[in-house]
Design a protein around this nucleic acid. Structure first.
Lengths: 365, 365
DNA sequence: TTGTAAGCGTTATCAG
DNA sequence: CTGATAACGCTTACAA
């Protein structure tokens, strides 16, 4: 005779209790069932599971056997209620679906698999709930912590994080990171690397094809910081720079490129941050008779696979999306355990030289 | 004097109870607090919230005010426990990070936003947990239902769905869909449309550049069905067809393309399903001196934005990723309410003619 | 090393 | 129309 519950969707089915003479496939054993079956107290079973107090080898094994036999699985909701921990973390993705798609995907996957290693599940939030989504999952205790992506310099979600006091890690760095843990690529340094690489090759007129204008309008941190690094390094290296935001469409790329060469025909170096325009850009350069890298050199800031997808392959500063996700989870776990260090982790960028950069063309051309 | 709990991560803080003389920002009101504050029974508050029994306008308002005042938010875990419903659904994504990235992203976003409309949150599962992940979320009652993507003809996750009896909707159609609800684009018809379009333009030698070989090895449904539709239509239209699976890299595309024209120099039509190789393919065609669409016509099966990102824009059968996600959630909600119709919803494909297809070149060339 | 029992915050049954 | 109250399944003091 066991007290049992239905499996999954149909637990309980009308009456809340039921006594059965045996086991049925579609009934879930509870911790109490396990305890009864093993002849121990419920708490003992719980402790066997959590390891929070020592249990004699003998009982441990007996309990383990019962768990196995009954196919026991703890009820997540009950756990969350009793322990005040949901073992879920929320990942807040950007609303714009056309933005940094491969990056976001890699982050999501890395976050999810890393979280699982710590026994956490990942809840997906889109920004169309706005900051309220964060409040909701925090105050309803649906999630224990949140990871924010696509962080702006002034991000309204941060106020919500502070207000609710929910543990959070940002992928990206806001203007004021006091009291927050953040991870990001060191985009300023990434920008510098690009410029320095081009400068070393003799390029004196460089154009930065950046993210779409609205990304700058939203003051997304990485975009601003990259620009900052580029500007600084350009000034230092005596490189003349123009910055052109660029939407993701073919037309946008065409327009931007045309205007760049119109304004400054001598432009020989391109720095590209918007991965969506890379294929159009290459195609446009070719069709306007410019050879890469003989006439124009290109450095990109993008995930390695993107850089290796083109011909010629792009010299690039790699955007380690998966690492960002993994580090974010690591930071979050530490924060939930020890409390936060209010740390800004900047991953040092590395530039890989591939086929898209070469010496600047001679003046005579 | 209120019995309260800490907000979010730090509920309870040591002692389980605490009496306070007032409210503090970081304490969460419980349903009992609301009841006390409104001078009603806890059950009444619950019923005001759920609407499952009628409550007089007067008490309803009083309760509403208390809820507002105390900033009450129901505890998700407690709800899940008492109601045997988590109000969470799990979305199972493919492990391979380089696969159909934009499609998966759109699906994820559409699923999440649609689910929210029904009061559901979305848990992200990657396939690296394998079918066990499904069992886990189902049997621990972490999720009420699952949505599977990247469904193979023989998909091992289906056995798990059947075994656990968890409500599920598949995005994709397996060989045996008995007892399952599925949504997918009608890929066979999509394939037919491509061939018919090319055939109508006079193309007689067509090559199908498909997904990577391992996608076929894994017997992913959509890949097989597209191929089937293409073959059938080609046979019917008297079009000579070769099928070449193709990995996502530039090299793979180059190799495949070279071999196609080596084997059959007269090939004038290309059908492309693997969105990753579209840019390389276009670039390769250009560099080998083939003009699109004068020399070679291209039809793709891909999301519209991808087709509009190239030059020339691609005639394509659009892959309505967001719609797939939305429909999947709709089906799931219906299934959880009424029970499943065991329905396979095939979305009829539409072909949009853009700039990449034109009349077949004359024989004389 | 183990058991007992009092919670966790809801929902839903059963009275009134 | 409303109130008490018994679950839901688990964790964790507190004893033994």
């Amino acid at each position: 005779m066991l007290t049992v519950r239905f499996c999954t969707a149909k637990r309980f089915s009308g009456k809340r209790f039921e006594a059965l003479g045996g086991y049925r496939e579609d009934w879930m054993a509870t911790l109490a069932d396990v305890a009864r079956h093993a002849g121990v107290a419920a708490s003992t079973v719980s402790y066997v599971l959590s390891g929070k107090r020592s249990v004699s080898e003998e009982t441990r094994e007996r309990v383990a056997r019962s768990i196995e036999l009954l196919g026991y699985q703890p009820h997540a909701g009950a756990r969350a209620l009793a322990s005040a921990k949901s073992n879920v973390l929320a990942l807040v993705m950007p609303l714009r679906q056309d933005l940094y798609v491969p990056v976001m995907m890699d982050i999501a996957i890395a976050v999810t698999t890393t979280a699982r290693r710590f026994g956490y599940d990942v809840l997906l939030l889109t920004n169309d709930e706005g900051p309220e989504g964060i409040r909701r999952v925090a105050t309803t205790a649906r999630a224990d912590a949140v990871i924010l992506t696509d962080v702006g310099m002034q991000d309204e979600r941060i106020a919500m994080v502070r207000q609710t006091g929910v543990d959070a890690v940002l992928i990206g760095v806001p203007a004021d990171s006091a009291g927050l843990d953040c991870v990001d690529l060191d985009f300023a340094q990434a920008g510098r690397l690009c410029v320095e690489h081009l400068a070393a090759l003799g390029h004196r007129q460089v154009a930065f094809v950046g993210e779409a204008q609205d990304t700058y309008d939203r003051q997304i941190g990485f975009a601003e910081r990259t620009l900052g690094g580029i500007r600084e390094a350009a000034a230092r290296a005596g490189v003349s720079l123009i910055h052109r935001p660029c939407g993701g469409s073919y037309e946008a790329a065409a327009g931007v490129l045309a205007r760049i060469f119109e304004e400054r025909p001598r432009t020989s170096g391109l720095i590209v941050q918007n991965e969506a325009v890379i294929p159009p850009l290459l195609s446009l350069l070719r069709s306007t008779g410019r050879i890469v890298p003989e006439d124009v050199s290109i450095v990109a800031v993008c995930p390695d696979p993107v850089a290796e997808q083109t011909s010629p392959r792009l010299s690039s500063v790699s955007l380690p999306a998966a690492e960002l996700g993994t580090r974010a989870v690591d930071l979050l776990m530490r924060r939930m355990a020890d409390g936060g260090r209010d740390e800004v982790v900047l991953i040092p960028p590395t530039l890989t030289v591939r086929g898209s950069t070469g010496p600047a063309p001679q003046r005579s051309r």
